[in-house]
Simulated scan of single mutants.
Amino acid sequence: MNGLLGLLRVRVKRGVNLAVRDLRSSDPYVILNMGKQKLKTRVIKRDTNPVWNEELTLSVEDPSLPVRLEVYDKDTFTLDDPMGNAEFDIRPFVEAVKLNLKNVPDGYIITKVAPCRENCLAEESPVYWSDGKVYQDLALRLRNVESGELELQLQWVSIPASKGF
C-alpha cells in the first residue's frame, strides 16, 4: 500500500500497576511505534499508576502494521530501564471506520475485540460510535515484565485529500 489512508489518534490515558524500577517507584514514559514512525509521551515522575492523558498521532498507510508500545523508566545517569511492551492490531478498528456510519446513535457498539493469545488485550475492547467519530478503548497487558497495564483510546481522523475512506 502506498498513500495516506488517514490518521490514528492514540490517547495514552494511563498506566496501572506498572513495575517498580527505581527505589519504590518509577518515572515512566511510553514510546509508540508503527512502521518507521516513533512517538513518545512525557515522563511522569515517581508514579507506578501514571496519568498521561496525552494524544499521539500516527499516519496510517498500511493498516496491517501493528502498533507497538514500549514503556520505560527514565534514568538520569544510566540507560532507561524497560518496563514492558505490548502491541495491538488496528485492522478491526479500520474495518469499523470503513463502514462509514452516519445515523447510528451515540454509544453504538460497532464491534468488540476479544482478548486472546495473539493480542495483548487485558479485557474485551469495544469499537464504538460517538460524536460522529469511531473510537476504540483498549486495556493492554504489558509483556516481558512482572506487572502493568496501559489504557488507550483510538480515534480515526479522516484526511480529505487522502486515499482513505
Rank of each mutant, 00 (worst) to 15 (best):
N33L: 09
G35A: 06
I31P: 04
D62E: 12
L65M: 13
L65T: 10
S59A: 10
V51P: 05
V94R: 00
I44S: 06
V67Q: 01
K45D: 12
G84P: 02
E54D: 11
Y72V: 01
L79V: 07
E61H: 08
E70P: 01
Y29F: 15
D75W: 09
P92I: 02
L101R: 04
Q37M: 09
Y29D: 11
R42N: 10
G35C: 10
L39Q: 11
K45E: 13
D62H: 06
L65W: 04
V20Y: 01
K38G: 13
D89I: 08
S26M: 11
E95S: 14
W52V: 14
P63M: 06
R24K: 13
K40F: 05
W52T: 07
L99H: 05
S26E: 10
L101N: 04
Y29N: 08
P63W: 03
E87D: 12
K38F: 05
D62W: 01
S26H: 08
V43Q: 03
G84R: 01
E70K: 14
T48I: 15
N33M: 07
T41M: 01
D81N: 11
T48H: 10
V20A: 03
K38E: 11
S25Y: 06
D75Y: 04
R24H: 09
V43G: 05
S64C: 07
P63Y: 02
R24G: 10
S59W: 03
E70A: 15
M34E: 09
Q37P: 14
T41Q: 09
T41F: 01
V94S: 00
M34T: 11
D89Y: 04
G84C: 01
P66A: 04
R91P: 08
L23A: 12
F93Q: 02
F93M: 02
K98S: 12
R91G: 06
L65Y: 03
S64P: 05
T57M: 11
Q37I: 11
D22W: 01
P50I: 03
K38T: 13
L79K: 05
K40E: 13
L58G: 01
R46S: 09
P28F: 06
P28G: 10
T57D: 05
K74V: 03
L39A: 10
